[in-house]
Amino acid sequence: MNAIEVRGLTKRFGQFTAVDHIDFDVKQGEIFGFLGANGAGKSTTIRMLCGLLSSTEGTARVGGFDINTDPHSVKQSIGYMSQKFSLYEDLTVEENIDFFGRVYGITESALKERKAWVLDIANLHGREKSITGTLSGGWKQRLALGCAVLHRPRIVFLDEPTSGVDPVMRRKFWELINELSADGVTVLVTTHFLEEAEYCNDIILINAGKIIASGSPKELKRDHIKHPILEVHCSDVVRAMERIEEEPWAVETSIFGTTIHVNVENEQQGRDAITSLLHRNGITVNGIERITPSLEDVFIYLLEHGGGKG
């Protein structure tokens, strides 16, 4: 049985369709990545799956329970970390942990052990009495994650858990998520950081409320990037990109830091065309190499071409 099964799930706010007939399955114990630009409908979907928002159309089963007809059973089996920090900022770290532990019916002795675990993973030992609002972003997020999984749910929804977290902390965060998954917990996570998507077993990409791609990172790269990608190192990156973009042989062009990625029909013809084009424009070419596509390349390609925009 799948941990989550979504069928034709739709959410409309008045005339506006935020989530548009989406279908997907999440397997037991996997890390499932949910990607999309701002306003794509990620949080709305998660909220429907947690029973926080009613669905306009369609259904979903979470942990075997229907979100429309049995939201209480759904709530018993999930943990949820919302995008916006939503622990009590005016309570201490310990008071927050105790409160959520008790609300979930954890016995006092078990709570002691779980509290130690949360303080462990959040690295907050010795700061139990600190007011939660005074913690910095990364610590807050880890405390929130701890509180969301305090009661050992089988399914966990994490809505952009790593936003506002520095790269080192982010790595630790993903170690935690991996540990959960190793324990058999199903994790559905949304993120803005495309490199984080590489840590997921399966991914869906949504745009304007519709799924435009799904599969494992490997499958996505194999299925969607048919063209070779050339990474161009050159002097005037912005102007170079503007020039290349105008050419018919450039399928897709985007800036990656100080380089340009160009999808071309044919590797050798592409190299020659780029070199002569930039040369004519007085831009120095320092090198062109073919690269293996990253998920970022895939998503940019999909958002520009493959994905129907609404």
Binding site: C50, G51, L52, H72, K75, Q76, I78, Y80, S82, K84, F85, S86, L87, Y88, E89, F100, V103, Y104, G105
Partner: peptide, 13 residues
């Protein structure tokens, strides 16, 4: 308004 209700509502309360 501050969002804590969202966290309360996913608990069995």
């Amino acid at each position: 308004e501050i969002g804590t209700l969202e966290q309360l509502l996913v608990t069995p309360l």
